[in-house]
Design a protein around this nucleic acid. Structure first.
Lengths: 380, 380
DNA sequence: GTGAAAGCGCTAACAC
DNA sequence: GTGTTAGCGCTTTCAC
């Protein structure tokens, strides 16, 4: 197969020029006489030459690679040793229904951000190195991150996928751009790309009040320690206050971002006939749980109860009724992160960048009732 | 911020040893006296030293990075320049219902494979470099791949994401592992990881005949130029023949893997009252289209018509009824690809590996009717 | 066990 | 324009 890999020297010899010309011909073609360039190119593809990335990076002091670090806990379960075996058959399995597992959606979120990074990174002629930084303990994570940081020009880090101390360490070596959130004590220090949770929720509430003239709310909250959850709640309160509704009169139910808990809570409401006019949920999963409990209880959405979610996961769209939600531009989060990184790389001493991407309030049946229906079987 | 990055020399000086000892202490700690090792470690974290990946790779002649190359055409549409702007608001949008876009599922497939690669790559202490190899023309693709190939120890390539000629080029430099399919003329030459399309479909058909005693089939086929489609059809025929049904008596409808086309075709069947007992679809999207048309036409699934799909996309599970399908182990495809690559790297001169992952036949309501339902609100 | 020194393959002054 | 040369930061013989 791949015998000895040809180097600049081989190319230079083959073309009868110096290695400098070869290098120039590749980096700055216009600084080389067309004739020699042709010579060199001929030699290059005669030899099948490809420059060594390592050597280039070492000499040029830049790798052209951006690292993406996000920890994703989903995978831990089935992480047994994977052994290659060419089993020669198809298994059969009865597949009983089960609730959509909540963590699957996390994955979706990450996938989208990753995709955005890939996209933008590619557009700019850079490479992307990905690291999910799985289970490891704090020490392992730090080591993992350390390995990566030696290979990249900059590191994009998903919020809370790495301990703050490690972050500081990484940052001594390369620029770091945070996604979604930065260490609270140092918010001003990191470049940051995030999404306007607060404004999205505020807008949603204002819309509900203005359009549907409702004022009997309940809030289904996520975990107390989630910054997202907190910001959404703040936006919720702002929205209410801006319409002269006192947020303190609105009951909060804590469902920890969980379908099941939200479902139970709502069942209970239904049983007690204690149902608010609007149930604002801090994420889509909970909204789905709420909807199911309501529907099963014979409550109509949105005629009896308006339900809203947050995030814009795909289930919010496939559910019946579809859920009004605040959709996060996940893909663009990734793109923005890369763009920010590129700016930082070009301008190492600039002030910290902090950009906030707008969210989109998607009005759907769970709040608006029947919507315009076009394009039914149009899509041939 | 990140001032001068410390090097081995700095560490050596700080610790009062030679750079060789520093290097050894990192690579083969046991070859260094514990005392000096301690000295060195102290110096290392006093300086915040991180070895340069480029230099390591260059000297060690290996990068520890595996490249993943998959072209994904989904993104082309909205690929306008992305500019950073900190728009300070949330947009509102009426969001009318629309069919699940078919390409979204491709993405899902890629995401899963990618995730599998990431997982396995991480488990083995390697890094993963991803490249979606977007729109470029053939020449651009080749160049893109060329850039990547200089930075990695091996390249995992998704079937048909790169022209065959380029593949040959890449292969001169590093080992290449193909995913899903290899160039037909050279199938024996490439390491290959794939899925048993044929066996899966055969098993499915056999199950249907054996369990439901049906023999009145129709086959909804994908595009003629899809190898997957072809293999599935072959499996379909095999299954029938093994049960003494002549495949030639079974009508084929070509719906090009498209929801919409399958939908139209089925509507037509319904209108003409010309409906088979079983509709075997070459992928899930088409099965979904079929189901919708049948359900809208008042036909019961599976009592009147059994419908089956292929792939195991998430919609096959969220649909009502859930679709019996042959699920591909996408995640494991990625893991297997990385494993194969690692083996190849360790053993450059071994015979080409070709492994085939088993698929899983998931029996669900669209063929079996009511299934055991447990775990309803168990998941607290 | 440890140090000196020779590369790894490239880029970028600096001469010519 | 083109060639010469000195690194880039590390690994790895080879002596000691």
């Amino acid at each position: 197969m791949s015998s000895k890999k040809p180097t600049v020297y081989d190319v230079a010899k083959e073309a009868g020029v110096s290695i400098a010309s070869v290098s120039r011909s590749l980096r700055t073609p216009e600084s080389v006489r067309p004739a020699t360039r042709k010579l060199i190119n001929r030699a290059i593809d005669r030899l099948g030459y490809v420059p060594s990335g390592s050597a280039q990076s070492l000499a040029a002091r830049r790798t052209g690679v951006i690292g993406l670090f996000m920890s994703n806990l989903d995978e831990l379960d089935d992480l047994q040793d994977f052994t290659l075996s060419s089993v020669d058959d198809a298994r059969v399995e009865i597949d009983p229904a089960h609730h959509a597992d909540s963590h699957r959606n996390d994955s979706l979120y990450y996938d989208q951000v990753l995709r955005g990074c890939e996209l933008e990174t590619w557009r700019r002629g850079l490479s992307l190195m990905v690291n999910l930084g799985l289970d490891r303990n704090e020490k392992g994570l730090t080591q993992l991150a350390g390995e990566m940081v030696g290979k990249v020009d900059g590191l994009i880090v998903m919020a809370r996928s790495v301990p703050d101390s490690t972050l500081e360490f990484l940052r001594r070596r390369v620029p770091v751009v945070m996604v979604a959130d930065a260490p609270s004590d140092n918010e001003a220090g990191y470049d940051l790309v995030r999404v306007s949770n607060r404004k999205g929720m505020r807008k949603l509430v204002q819309h509900l009040v203005d359009t549907h003239h409702v004022d009997d709310f309940a809030y289904i909250a996520g975990p107390d320690d989630s910054p997202d959850n907190h910001k959404r709640y703040v936006g919720f309160c702002e929205g209410l206050r801006s319409r002269n509704i006192n947020p303190e009169t609105v009951p909060i139910y804590r469902a920890g971002f969980s379908f099941a808990v939200a479902h139970t809570i709502t069942q209970d409401m239904v049983a007690r006939h204690k149902i608010p006019r609007v149930m604002v949920c801090a994420n889509d999963q909970m909204a789905l749980g709420v909807c199911k409990a309501l529907t099963d209880g014979g409550i109509r959405i949105p005629q009896d109860v308006i339900v809203t979610g947050f995030d814009g996961i795909s289930e919010s769209e496939t559910n019946t009724p579809r859920i009004t939600t605040v959709s996060q531009p996940m893909r663009n989060l990734g793109r923005a992160a890369v763009s920010t990184m590129v700016q930082r790389l070009e301008n190492p001493d600039a002030e910290p960048y902090a950009i906030e991407l707008p969210v989109t309030l998607l009005l759907r049946e769970s709040s608006e009732g029947e919507l315009t229906k076009e394009q039914e079987s149009t899509s041939d």
